[in-house]
Design a protein around this nucleic acid. Structure first.
Lengths: 193, 193
DNA sequence: ATTATCTATAGATCTATAGATAATGC
DNA sequence: ATTATCTATAGATCTATAGATAATGC
């Protein structure tokens, strides 16, 4: 039952798309090749026609997750980005959220290939945030450093909030304190110029 | 070859101490009971005389990690804490570092019992940081929110830096930008009062 | 003829348990 | 007698591969 080239490409993309969500939801170790392939409507042996190894898939799926996330925050101003990122909705929907918040801790333990994808993804998020901040009138030499600080705080806020028990007060308090602090930083810097 | 009660307690503590470092280094999924027990000088079957399950150990080891970390940053001023936490040394020594930076992403996928330990641990770190900030003359209603913001940024900075490839410029740039931003926040707030 | 997929399985994990052993604590 | 540990193993994973099948692409 051989298929066309296009259908193979479709299968490949579907596996990557499903993996990108499953990895964010359950972590790299929490997803097995067999279950992933079953969800893609294929048998698990076929996996190795598409990828050299699971790690190969991890790199490709992570790249896709960063791409989606970068697009989501493009063409917005920094305050909107902050409100979207540091929110209960983002915290509670891991599967479609930012991979930096879902997988960074595990990424630190992956091979250098996967870490290179993460480095490029973080760099892209920083670059996007610099552009978003320009819409708030923020530019100049310190803009990049501030973008990095805001990203780190936003990522930290979502990660810490997720680590708290469900429905805990602290989980929501973390989000609100960080959202306001990041907004203040943008507003203050915006007024300076 | 039965042993004394004290020796059992010693074995128990040693398993928890070793696990607390191994989990931070490799993640909860990266540590098997057999290897852990071998490192503790015991056979893996004996594990279940000390713990109901691996998850029981995860809760106890994580509590210990948070305890160590809280003690490390007690009785210091906030600027010293920031310099120690957001540093290459901390980033490169996961096994003895802060569990919030090493394990938060995975904690989000653990049971509510483990998340309760995490919530209490984060709460303790926030409380400690509030006390540290008081040494810089920072107090009042906004102090707690600022402690949360600083903690989130510090945790985010270490996590993102670890996710970057070894020896990448970005990894160090993240640490430096966040360290300076957190210091500025403390200094500015300190001058207000 | 090539190749994308499938079936089946190798080989290496993993957590957890059953039963034996032997020294402490009553 | 109790119990902390050990040996051995059950049962369930996991990644990866070998070989068969069958439809595309030459």
């Amino acid at each position: 039952m051989r298929i066309t080239k296009e259908q193979k490409q479709e299968n490949h993309d579907r596996i990557v798309a499903i993996a990108s969500e499953m990895f964010r939801e359950r972590g790299y170790d929490g997803v097995g090749v067999a279950e992933l392939m079953e969800r893609a409507g294929l048998t698990h042996g076929g996996f190795y026609n598409h990828f050299r190894s699971k790690e190969d898939l991890i790199a490709k799926a992570t790249m896709r997750s960063f791409g989606e996330t970068g697009e989501r925050y493009a063409d917005l101003d920094a305050l909107t980005v902050i409100d979207l990122y540091i929110s209960r909705e983002h915290r509670d929907r891991r599967a479609t959220g930012c991979p930096a918040a879902a997988l960074s801790c595990e990424a630190a333990r992956q091979t250098d290939d996967t870490r290179a994808v993460f480095g490029a993804g973080i760099e892209a998020l920083v670059g996007g945030l610099v552009q978003d901040m320009a819409r708030n009138g923020i530019s100049g030499p310190g803009a990049r450093a501030q973008a990095i600080s805001i990203l780190a705080q936003a990522v930290g806020a979502v990660i810490l909030s997720r680590a708290c028990p469900d429905a805990s007060t602290l989980a929501d308090e973390i989000l609100e304190a960080c959202r306001l602090d990041c907004r203040d930083a943008v507003v203050n810097r915006s007024q300076e110029s």
